[in-house]
């Protein structure tokens, strides 16, 4: 365990830029909700939320700077969640 694994220092400008991006995306998501796109609305909202959360995970939560193992772990967890949600719809959509 001699490796230096205390990580990378993220500069304040980067953090503030991410914060601004998050605010802008929030504004976009509120604006998009005012336009009636039918079923598409929910997907637009989820899409923007996913972009926002990717930013938080990658930068605020340092995922971008972690070892690949962490990224694999995250993928496994997200995939599991997607399966739990998706497979339920095999029932719900075809009832």
């Amino acid at each position: 365990m001699s490796e230096h694994d205390k990580g990378h220092i993220i500069g304040y400008p980067v953090l503030i830029a991410v914060w601004l991006a998050l605010l802008i995306l929030t504004a976009i998501t509120v604006a998009a909700a005012q336009i009636d796109l039918g079923e598409l609305n929910i997907w637009v909202a989820l899409g923007i939320a996913s972009v926002k959360s990717s930013l938080v995970i990658a930068v605020f939560m340092h995922m971008k700077y972690e070892k690949p193992l962490f990224q694999v772990f995250l993928l496994v967890a997200l995939l599991t969640l997607a399966i739990f949600i998706g497979f339920t719809f095999f029932d719900v959509l075809y009832r």
């Binding site: 509120v30 909700a33 909202a45 989820l46 939320a49 959360s53 938080v56 939560m61």
Partner: peptide
Amino acid sequence: GLYWHLVDLIWIFLFPLYYLVL
């Protein structure tokens, strides 16, 4: 901090799903 960001992450999804459904 990681825990706090998770709280934020959940909210990022809650907000559009509950307040902005159209």
